[in-house]
Design a protein around this nucleic acid. Structure first.
Lengths: 225, 225
DNA sequence: TATTTATGATAGTAATACTACTATTTTAAA
DNA sequence: TTTAAAATAGTAGTATTACTATCATAAATA
């Protein structure tokens, strides 16, 4: 039996639901590939339309502009990741074990998830690493936030913050520590591969080392002194 | 006596040295103001030229494009900050005290430095917080890195990494911890002001709380167990 | 004084980021 | 079954962006 995994998206992110038609799904899958290939700055709706074999205007019927599309893709990613976290930590009693599992999920290279047909999660994970922060590092961040565009990201942060608090009820920075490990899971990966002298993993370039670093950082922080 | 502070810049960052002429210094000072005001995405050389009262072509004689200008400004900032760190930690024996001072410098709101006439460090600090990562989160990061554009950033990271190692010679992630506190000094500030639920400082919005968080994070991490 | 150098003004091009309009197909109601 | 509404596709056009090139003039310097 094949189970389809549907992630419910904020309707203000699109003009027409891209999950609802062939063209829409093509926009999602090919935008992931194209952004991964040429980077978000060089990515345009015209180039995307050429790849898909449709017209620029066709893309604009689904997304207002490329910023909205990036926010859509990041929101999708965080929604998908929250599901992964809930699924993979389900039935694990010990919050410490759950927290370790979360760090694994955040930092590990993602494999393409068969349950979501059109989006390649492995490529999307790479995009989140190198382009993800651009979704909120803008002048419109507050307006976008009012429209709840970043809710999936904040939800993941909250879930992780809650596990941290479960591990260590007295720790007073659970949310900041959560956002720190989320961001660092990505930044240390980017640095390791592109600016290796900013990390201690430049020689081996192993994600497992990032995981060890993050585990040490987190468990040292929440330990009762 | 007024002492001028000159930061030596990588020559590949500009076409004509902006420190060498009135127009060049105007480009620097007004680009800081304009990027701060409208954000890097909306910032164009045409708008900058209008503000300064010159022409677009005039700006292009100094900088190849706005990306190079952003990289210039971030490199300038990190050069300036390294000087601040060396100056303010000079003659302090205890590496622990030095490390605390560094965290203060990274996270604190900057005041305009009288010794650098044209650049407003307070505004530049805000730009680094919200736009700084865009200098390296690009497809050209490796080429830019080969040209040493990020050396000032890496130097600051190395200085901090060395202090960490001095505090705790056995700690095996000094560089990654250094890049973590640098990035988090900025990201926690951005989150606190724009996406407060990602932090524990949303109520007071006090930079001192970020400093406490970072101090706890760092000293818990490097403590011998 | 001659000459390099910096700035200014104007124009032009290709690409980007859209919007508007028309044609066609699909669906759904009368 | 006819007809009208709705969705989709394609064409064309505009304003802005991101430059480049040219020429004139002013200032600095040799």
């Amino acid at each position: 039996m094949k189970i389809e995994l549907q992630i419910s998206m904020n309707e203000a992110l699109y003009l027409r639901n891209p999950e609802s038609s062939e063209l829409g799904r093509n926009i999602l899958s090919h935008s992931v590939e194209l952004i991964h290939k040429i980077g978000f700055e060089a990515f345009t709706f015209k180039k995307l339309a050429e790849v898909i074999g449709t017209t620029e205007a066709g893309i604009y019927r689904y997304f207002e502009n490329k910023h909205k599309l990036l926010v859509y893709l990041t929101a999708w990613y965080w929604g998908w990741l929250e599901f992964q976290i809930r699924f993979q930590t389900n039935n694990i009693k010990d919050p410490t074990v759950r927290l370790k599992k979360v760090i694994d999920l955040l930092a590990s290279a993602v494999e393409d998830d068969e349950r979501t047909s059109h989006i390649n999660e492995a490529l999307l994970h790479q995009i989140i690493i190198s382009e993800g922060s651009k979704a909120y590092l803008t002048k419109q961040v507050s307006e976008d936030n009012k429209q709840q565009f970043f809710k999936p990201y904040k939800d993941v942060c909250e879930v992780i913050g809650n596990i941290i608090s479960e591990c260590s009820p007295g720790y007073i920075y659970p949310k900041s520590l959560a956002s720190t490990i989320i961001e660092m899971a990505h930044f240390q990966n980017f640095f390791m591969n592109n600016l290796p002298s900013l990390t201690d993993f430049g020689k081996t370039k192993q994600v497992t080392e990032i995981i060890s670093f993050l585990n040490h950082l987190v468990f040292a922080s929440i330990k009762k002194l």
